[in-house]
């Protein structure tokens, strides 16, 4: 589903590569934690999958496509097959919950009747039934992140990318979000999640890829956050 081969990425303005000869293979339906200290290259890794950045060397394959060969105008189609969740939720403050989720479908040209059918379904799935008319500032952080997950998942992407989705949440709220991501993963969606949250990684016991200074220093099938733990 996702394959990086000898991928290096050096940003124009910096001397040190953000990613250095990274080779990782992720199967369909896997749940992968990306861990590592700040600046180790986790977000860069995820941005490469979306073709928001292009690698300096090496190749990236997503869903069978070589991203280097993917023409400019096919990038939107790639992104439709990948859902994204971020630490800062990225909701539109002037739209309510329903509209925020519907927005993701409107802008890819989905018809109205389909939107009004699938949005309530996905809001139920993420546990926001009855809150569809709330504005984002009337929701708790955890609820806002659920809206973001709903928006990422409403188009039923093959891959879900999460960059520190629990970074702004307290531990118990984080557990709720993780249960949600786990549920989504069980529908067959491949999940790649960058995180600093040791407790979550340790409790989930899923595959862990650790980056350090842009290099893969560990790739464990049922890993924990740190070596010692």
């Amino acid at each position: 589903m996702i394959r990086l081969e000898h991928v290096s990425k050096t940003y124009p303005a910096s001397a040190r590569p953000a990613l250095d000869d990274v080779t990782v293979d992720i199967e369909k339906g896997e749940f992968v934690f990306l861990v590592g200290s700040s600046g180790s290259g986790k977000s860069t890794f995820l941005r490469l999958l979306l073709k928001e950045e292009t690698p300096t060397a090496g190749s990236v394959h997503v869903a069978g496509k070589d991203l280097a060969r993917l023409s400019h105008w096919k990038v939107p189609a790639l992104r439709r097959s990948i859902g994204c969740v971020f630490q800062d939720f990225r909701l539109l403050p002037n739209k309510n919950v329903f509209q925020n989720v519907a927005f993701a479908l409107e802008v890819i040209g989905k018809p109205h009747h389909q939107i009004s059918k699938v949005v309530p379904e996905v809001l139920d799935l993420v546990g926001l039934e009855g809150k569809s008319q709330r504005m984002p500032d009337e929701l708790s952080g955890g609820e806002q992140q659920r809206v973001a997950v709903a928006r990422a998942f409403v188009n039923r992407p093959m891959i879900l990318i999460a960059d520190e989705p629990t970074g702004n949440l307290d531990p118990s709220t984080s557990v709720g979000i993780m249960k949600l991501l786990d549920r989504i993963n069980r529908t067959g969606t491949t999940v790649v999640m960058a995180t600093h949250d040791a407790a979550i990684v340790d409790s989930m016991r899923r595959r862990v890829v650790e980056l350090s200074m842009g290099k893969v220093v560990r790739d464990q099938t049922r890993g924990v956050y740190g070596y010692g733990a």
């Binding site: 939107p76 790639l78 097959s81 994204c84 990225r90 539109l92 927005f103 890819i108 040209g109 188009n155």
Partner: peptide, 15 residues
């Protein structure tokens, strides 16, 4: 903010 989200969810350039 809007256009950032639009890009992320795969809205086409035209849209």
């Amino acid at each position: 903010r809007e256009t950032g989200i639009m890009r992320l969810v795969g809205a086409s350039n035209l849209y």
